Simulated assay, not measured.
Amino acid sequence: MFFDSWSGLIRVIVVGTAAYIGLIALLRISGKRTLAQLNAFDFVVTVALGSTLATVLLSSSVALAEGLTAFALLIGLQYIVTWSSVRWPVVRKLARSSPSLLVYQGAWVKDNLESNRVTEDEVMQALRKQGKSSLSEIGAVVLETDGSFSILQSVPEGGL
């Protein structure tokens, strides 16, 4: 239960080191966007890479070559989605959400709060983190595509 054999520990060390190096190399080749977590697809890839690494490390029935192939597949699919979303608006619309206006010139945009499942308390918390205590101190609050809040001090001429 606490210790099976030295060979199991050595396997984890050797395969873990090789899998780690392989994953880092593939991530460097694929570029910065692979782990950006800007949308649901990015998040899924990040979680899947972690799960795959854990499986390769702890399951003796999964060979290192299979794990590296899984890494390459996930990163390759992510590359295809991001490459396609830059070139085709229809793919972009499927892969990314749009920012949502939650507060505009001191007034709540109730429909956007409800559709994004955001409470007024969460928005007020974001305001307090920026040193603001009321809606009258800001121009707008936007829920960004990565789930963060952007607080705009003033609204540009002509609106957002």
Rank of each mutant, 00 (worst) to 15 (best):
R33Y: 03
L35H: 02
L35A: 07
L35K: 04
L35E: 08
A36P: 01
Q37G: 10
Q37L: 14
L38C: 09
L38G: 15
L38F: 09
N39I: 10
N39K: 09
A40G: 13
F41M: 14
F43I: 13
F43H: 13
F43R: 14
V44H: 08
V44M: 15
T46D: 09
V47C: 12
V47K: 11
V47S: 05
A48L: 13
G50P: 00
G50C: 11
S51K: 08
T52I: 14
T52S: 10
L53I: 09
A54N: 04
A54E: 09
A54M: 11
A54R: 08
T55L: 15
T55D: 14
T55K: 15
L58C: 10
S59A: 14
S60P: 13
S60Y: 11
S60C: 03
V62L: 13
A63K: 11
L64Y: 02
A65M: 14
E66H: 14
L68A: 10
L68C: 12
L68M: 13
T69Y: 13
A70F: 05
I75F: 12
I75T: 07
G76M: 08
Y79R: 12
Y79P: 04
Y79V: 10
I80T: 11
T82M: 11
S85Y: 07
V86Q: 12
R87F: 02
R87P: 03
R87L: 06
W88A: 04
P89Y: 04
P89R: 11
V90E: 04
V90S: 13
R92N: 15
R92L: 08
K93W: 05
L94C: 08
L94H: 03
A95G: 04
R96T: 11
S97G: 14
S97W: 01
S97H: 02
S98F: 05
S98G: 04
P99N: 00
S100L: 09
S100D: 03
S100V: 05
L101Q: 02
L101K: 06
Y104V: 03
Y104G: 01
Q105T: 09
A107I: 04
V109C: 06
V109T: 00
K110G: 00
K110N: 11
D111E: 08
N112V: 01
E114H: 10
E114Q: 12
S115A: 10
N116T: 10
R117C: 01
T119H: 05
T119V: 07
D121N: 05
E122L: 07
E122T: 01
V123C: 02
M124S: 00
Q125R: 08
Q125A: 14
Q125V: 12
L127K: 03
R128W: 01
G131V: 01
G131L: 03
G131Q: 04
K132R: 13
S133M: 05
S134F: 03
S134Q: 06
L135K: 00
S136M: 03
S136W: 02
S136T: 05
E137R: 07
E137H: 04
E137D: 11
I138V: 15
A140G: 08
A140T: 09
V141Q: 00
V141A: 02
V141Y: 01
V141L: 00
V142T: 04
L143W: 00
E144W: 00
T145H: 01
G147K: 06
S148N: 12
S148F: 02
S148L: 06
S148G: 06
F149S: 04
S150C: 07
S150M: 10
S150G: 03
I151G: 07
L152I: 14
